[in-house]
Design a protein around this nucleic acid. Structure first.
Length: 398
RNA sequence: GGGUGCGUCGCAUAGCGGCAAUUGCAUUGGGCUGUAAACCCAACGUCUUAAUUGACUACGUAGGUUCGAGUCCUACCGCACCCA
């Protein structure tokens, strides 16, 4: 156990779920050499939310002690397709896409990680895989047995159900594992879904005479509606790229019973203070809303300046608590001769004209604070159009 | 290879030949609130009309029977189970 390390570091205690190879890890940390931390990414989906950020903040804490994060782009393996996901499709991906994705990814990551060359290194796994000859691949595969691969729970499930397992899917973990060998990874911080693949890394590292990497998995919290973990497709995330205002709003819509969990996972608020909040919430001494505001401030300040945090809160107050309209909204030019029902659809506030009609009928459409009930109403003056609680567009008629 | 059953709006589910199609969840809007939960109401294919007016498109795919087909028939595709 790395009790020592764990006890010293709150970020560890709060966020780490499991650690494999902790003894070696502690030894290495005590040694003179700086560690190499593998961070494998799929740059075809350059999208990070605060759930991903938990891992990144951990990496950051290592960087601050001089350890290096190796940002590993799985460009070669992307072409195979990771069976971890549900989809079987293998999109063809061009070098240009990879370049673009990498740039975007690093932009988002740099909100958290240091990108100084001393502690940040970018690599691609095509560097080694695309140079390997068939014979070398066979040689690599000969290190791993069938039984080792199919013990993976996902494969077991498929076997039970009588579903197919394709050869390339079985090879994927080997590729990902070999990456650890090639970059001489000392540790990697991952979500538990990647555990199997990274274990393969340990296997291969041992075979190739290296110290196996330590695997650190982090705890997962539910998405902002309380259900499953944050993901893009479920639209239940707070993205790193979201504006401060947006982050604030999303956090305020969080169910009450997640407040404490979110404080622990996504903020650096001292544990003692969290404990205090928890108690006061339980005893109903404090309004959950005010704790939630605190939560929002704490999360946002990790990604934005103090000024922006204040601005976001101000925005929230004005817009939602005092029901005033926000000053800053996207603006769109519209054709003033068209009835509102069409305009709504054209500027993307509604799905279809029928949808516009429904929303108008249910009183969801407001212009400058006045509910519009007539679908044929024409917008001839400039102003803010609002649909539902959250959608605003400033319109400029012409 | 042979047999049986099944494929319906995101998921799940109903549908004796007259159906834009039931119900639950999810979603969206309104109310109550703290852009929380719970709760109440409503909507939930597209376009059109002053108006549920009118039209078009939908029940795995393609044909057929019928005034009329999600519902019956045939073939195909996909899925599940059983036999070999």
């Amino acid at each position: 156990m790395v009790k020592k390390y764990l006890n010293e570091s709150e970020i560890f205690i709060r966020n780490v779920e499991k650690m494999i190879g902790s003894e070696e890890f502690e030894k290495k940390l005590k040694g003179p050499k700086k560690l190499r931390i593998k961070y494998g990414v799929d740059v075809t989906a350059p999208f990070l939310h605060i759930g991903h950020a938990v891992n990144l903040w951990l990496m950051r804490s290592f960087q601050e002690e001089g350890h290096k994060v190796v940002f590993l782009i799985g460009d070669f393996t992307t072409k195979i397709g990771d069976p971890t996901g549900k989809t079987q499709t293998r999109p063809k991906i061009s070098d240009a896409d990879i370049k673009k994705g990498t740039k975007e990814f690093i932009k988002q990551v740099s909100k958290i990680l240091l990108t100084d060359k001393k502690v940040f290194e970018v690599r691609k796994n095509s560097e080694w895989f695309s140079r390997m000859k068939p014979a070398q691949f066979i040689e690599l595969f000969s290190n791993i047995t069938h039984a080792q691969i199919i013990q993976r729970d996902m494969f077991q499930e498929r076997i039970k159900k009588g579903d197919e397992i394709y050869i390339h899917e079985m090879l994927y973990p080997i590729f990902q594992g070999y990456d650890s060998v090639m970059i001489r990874s000392d540790a990697t911080i991952i979500g538990s879904d990647q555990l199997f693949n990274e274990m393969m890394g340990r296997n291969l590292q041992k075979i190739f005479g290296q110290d196996p990497q330590t695997i650190i998995t982090t705890k997962i919290t539910p998405g902002i509606h309380g259900g499953p973990k944050q993901s893009k497709s479920l639209d239940n995330y707070v993205a790193i790229e979201d504006s401060a205002e947006n982050k604030f709003g999303k956090i305020m819509s969080l169910p009450d019973d997640l407040i404490i969990q979110y404080l622990e996972t996504y903020t650096t608020m001292p544990s003692a203070e969290i404990e205090k909040n928890k108690k006061e919430l339980e005893d109903k001494k404090i309004n959950p809303m005010s704790v939630k505001k605190e939560l929002a401030r704490e999360i946002i300040k990790r990604y934005h300046s103090k000024k922006e945090v204040l601005k976001a809160e101000e925005f929230f107050k004005k817009t939602f608590q005092e029901k005033k309209l926000p000053q800053e909204t996207p603006s769109k030019k519209i054709d003033s001769s068209k009835p509102i029902i069409y305009v709504l659809h054209e500027i993307g506030l509604t799905r279809s004209i029928s949808d516009s009609r429904r929303l108008i009928n249910s009183g969801a459409v407001e212009f400058e604070g006045e509910i519009i009930k007539d679908p044929r109403h024409k917008l001839i003056t400039q102003g803010v159009l609002r649909v539902g609680k959250k959608k605003f567009v400033k319109i400029i008629p012409k």
